[in-house]
Design a protein around this nucleic acid. Structure first.
Lengths: 171, 171
DNA sequence: CAGAAATCGTCTGGAGCCAGATTGTTTGAC
DNA sequence: GTCAAACAATCTGGCTCCAGACGATTTCTG
């Protein structure tokens, strides 16, 4: 880490000065990311989210909708509250996701048998078909987005994020 | 598995229960995060960003403003464009950040000497004082937020995120 | 030099996210 | 049984983010 309190304010030419530590403003972000894992995490997240959005849009389904279908397929009918909690999607957002999925016929909102406050959101056949199509594209998407990391590194990353998630969601 | 019409997703999780709708998903998120690093990354990012926001708010400064002051201190006067590029903050957002910093007297907008389209955003003394206070709180914040990871793991995480950032920002 | 193209900062509008209030239903205390 | 509290889903309003358009200024091209 280079000394930070330097006071060099005088001349500021258009091209970055390359006098001292190599680069000052030319690639400041790299230094910042190394020093502040929180910032690195957030910036990486937006980059990945952007890629995921683009890919999901191309498939005619949003990331949130994809996750809802996936969870319904793997867990069975759920209330919106359970979907929200487990997918970490705000409950007021989940309303819109289920609205659009239901309107497209990918999901039915059946009343829960014993608790009529809650729905039992249920996957339909067309929903499962859409999910299968979306799932088929996931591996390639992950390969291209995380292509800079080898298999071992991806596993490392997943482990580290897992620890982080478990700690931050349970203080 | 519940006796729904869906019987195809045969995940070999032995920890399934047979209650009615809802309880099958005791901790679905953990499985999802292990399988989808993109989702894990985004959820971890929002958790960390939330913590950072709370902490920055308590200090009377937002994360974006903090970063602007930090970069100005380490690099010297910058145009808003350079700040935006290096901090990965949208240029239209940078306008508001600089507005509030200038209004509070932490920053001056001087015209660039040779390019009168651009400003030379310059740190003031009060700005440097605020930055020092904010920087003083960073290590403790990082320790508490990334407390689940040991020093070696944090270094791993920084390295992995660095690779990811470098690859995603250069398509 | 003129004029076209690029660049800097700004403004505007649409989209998404989330805290808080609201409605209908269930649960628990008495 | 009755009433208050808790809870599922929804609605509302305020907020931030970002694409695109705009005026002012510079740089490029001939």
């Amino acid at each position: 880490m280079p000394p930070t309190n330097t006071d060099r304010a005088s001349t500021d030419r258009a091209s970055a000065d390359r006098t001292d530590t190599g680069r000052t403003s030319a690639d400041y972000f790299r230094q910042l990311a190394a020093e502040r894992p929180d910032i690195a995490l957030c910036r990486a997240s937006t980059a990945v989210a952007r890629a995921a959005d683009a890919q999901a849009q191309a498939l005619g389904i949003g990331v949130g909708r994809h996750l809802v279908l996936k969870m319904l397929a793997e867990v069975g009918p759920c209330s919106q509250r359970v979907l929200s909690d487990q997918l970490r999607i705000d409950r007021t957002v989940m309303v819109g996701l289920c609205d659009s999925l239901e309107e497209a016929g990918h999901v039915r909102r059946e009343r829960h048998a014993t608790d009529r406050r809650a729905y039992a959101v249920t996957l339909t056949d067309t929903g499962r078909q859409l999910l299968d199509r979306a799932e088929a594209a996931v591996p390639e998407f992950l390969d291209s987005t995380f292509g800079a990391l080898g298999p071992a590194e991806r596993k490392q990353l997943a482990t580290l994020l897992g620890k982080l998630l478990h700690s931050t969601s349970r203080p």
